[in-house]
Structure formats: structure tokens, C-alpha cells
């Protein structure tokens, strides 16, 4: 029996005195697309960053395909190769060309030979529609293009699941669509995805489930149609009203 990609058990996280995650438990199934929603400061980005241990959980555990990544002896680097991560600020390596951005972790982490790494990089770049930018430096690309390259870079590692931390929040409005399109295609191809986002349209159309968080707890979760159209909790209603006004 295959363990689920991500299983979060009673996760707590403190920043000093402040408890930002107060007992989060949820399981992400194979091929499931889950959107994490909630006001800023609700802990959703922290939760996402705990999943690949960019933040250390204070208590509780996170099982990646059955292996506890919060364990002291966990092979964190090895587990991370199975978890693709996309950041709000793209975080492409500015001193490397697009091709080298896509190749370096394949070479240095997976030990793939250069020609194989190049072939995979070209394939992934085609998937995000940026084959013609292969020799550019990131600074020559628009924000939307940089984010698509960042997605391709994560895909080059053949991850079993992808984490997106507000992938469109740093983009000009007219560039958001191209990134969401790539993410939609990825979801349709069956990728397991955990997405922190404010894009309600994307959550409605693409997500299998949305999780609404506030003040470090899961307030409610369920199919996007129910949670977004007919929320059960006042806090969810207030949040949805507030972003509609925007």
C-alpha cells in the first residue's frame, strides 16, 4: 500500500513566543490539488515551508510518502528532491543561464550526466513554453517567464509533489494568467499539488479541495464549491467577502 504523498499530524510551530501553527492535521492524497487559503498571518505559508522543512516544526510530524521529514535523522536532502517548491519571488539563480538553472541540481544532486540533464531541461522548458529562452539570464525575463522557468526547474527533479508559495503574488496582473495556465496543465497531468494562493478563480476551477486557515488552525476544508460558495464558518465568510471587495 502506497503511503499518501503528504500526511501532516498535529503540527505546531512557534516563532519565539508566538504560536503560528496550532495543531494542523491533514492528508494530501496522490494526484490531489489542494489550495491553502486564508488571511495573511494565518500560517499558511509557514505550513507549506514546514512540509519541505525550510521551517522546523516545533511539534508534530509530517510524513512524506510515509517518511517523517521532521525526524532528526531524516534524509532531508533526499526527501526534498521528491518535493518541488515554487517561491513567490521565483528565486532563480541570477548568475546562471536558464539552461544551467535547470541543470545544476540535476547534475549536483541527482548525478545525472550533462547531456541527460540538458535533454530533461529542454523537455521541461518546452512544457512551460519557454524553449526560446534557454540561453538567457533570468534578469532578461519577465516575472511570469521567470516563474515558469522556476516551475520547470522544480520539474526537472521529477518530483512526486509540488509546493507553491503564493506563486503569482509578485506578478503584474497581466502576467498571472500564463503562470496559472502552466499550473493548471500540471494539475491535469496528475501532479500532487499544495498551493498557497489568493487566486480564487484558480482554486474554484483547479483545486480538488481547499483548506481555509486562520490564526494557525484549519477553520474548514472541503471541495472548493462548498467552501468558497457556501462557507460554514463566519471567519471564512468574512475572509471571502473581504477579498471580493478587493
Amino acid at each position: 500500500m502506497n503511503a499518501p504523498p503528504i500526511e501532516i499530524r498535529d503540527l505546531h510551530k512557534y516563532f519565539g513566543e508566538l504560536e503560528v501553527l496550532r495543531g494542523i492535521s491533514t492528508t494530501i492524497q496522490q494526484g490531489e490539488v489542494v489550495c491553502l487559503l486564508g488571511p495573511s498571518g494565518s500560517g499558511k505559508s509557514t505550513l507549506l515551508r514546514c512540509v519541505n522543512r525550510l521551517e522546523e516544526a516545533t511539534a508534530g510530524s509530517i510524513l512524506i510518502e510515509g517518511e517523517d521529514i521532521t525526524d532528526e535523522d531524516a534524509d532531508v536532502d533526499g526527501l526534498r528532491t521528491r518535493i518541488g517548491m515554487v517561491f513567490q519571488q521565483f528565486n532563480l539563480f541570477p548568475h546562471l543561464t536558464v539552461l544551467r538553472n535547470l541543470r545544476i541540481a540535476q547534475r549536483k544532486v541527482l548525478g545525472r550526466p550533462t547531456d541527460e540533464a540538458t535533454r530533461i531541461a529542454e523537455e521541461m522548458l518546452e512544457r512551460v513554453g519557454l524553449s526560446d529562452k534557454i540561453d538567457e539570464h533570468p534578469s532578461r525575463l519577465s516575472g511570469g517567464q521567470q516563474q515558469r522557468v522556476a516551475i520547470a526547474r522544480a520539474l526537472c527533479m521529477n518530483p512526486d509533489m509540488m509546493l507553491f508559495d503564493e506563486p503569482t503574488s509578485a506578478l503584474d496582473p497581466e502576467l498571472i494568467g500564463e503562470v496559472l495556465d502552466v499550473m493548471r496543465e500540471l494539475a491535469e497531468a496528475g501532479m500532487t499539488m499544495l498551493v498557497v494562493t489568493h487566486e480564487m478563480g484558480f482554486a474554484l476551477q483547479v483545486a480538488d479541495r481547499v483548506i481555509f486557515m486562520d490564526e494557525g488552525v484549519i477553520v474548514e476544508e472541503g471541495p472548493p464549491n462548498e467552501v468558497l460558495r457556501n462557507p460554514a464558518h463566519d471567519r471564512t465568510k468574512r475572509f471571502l467577502r473581504a477579498i471580493e471587495v478587493e
Binding site: N91, F93, A150
Partner: peptide
């Protein structure tokens, strides 16, 4: 920027590899 180290680590690089190449 901090994000450079985070991006490198989240691709599975060890801290030494990330330091050396990124």
C-alpha cells in the same frame, strides 16, 4: 538574498553544494 539558499536547498542540495555553486 536568503531565497537563493532556500531555492537551492529545496532542490535537494546540501548546504555545502548550495554554498559552492549558488
Amino acid at each position: 538574498p536568503r531565497g537563493q539558499m532556500e531555492a537551492a536547498r529545496s532542490l535537494g542540495m546540501s548546504s555545502g553544494t548550495a554554498m559552492t555553486y549558488i
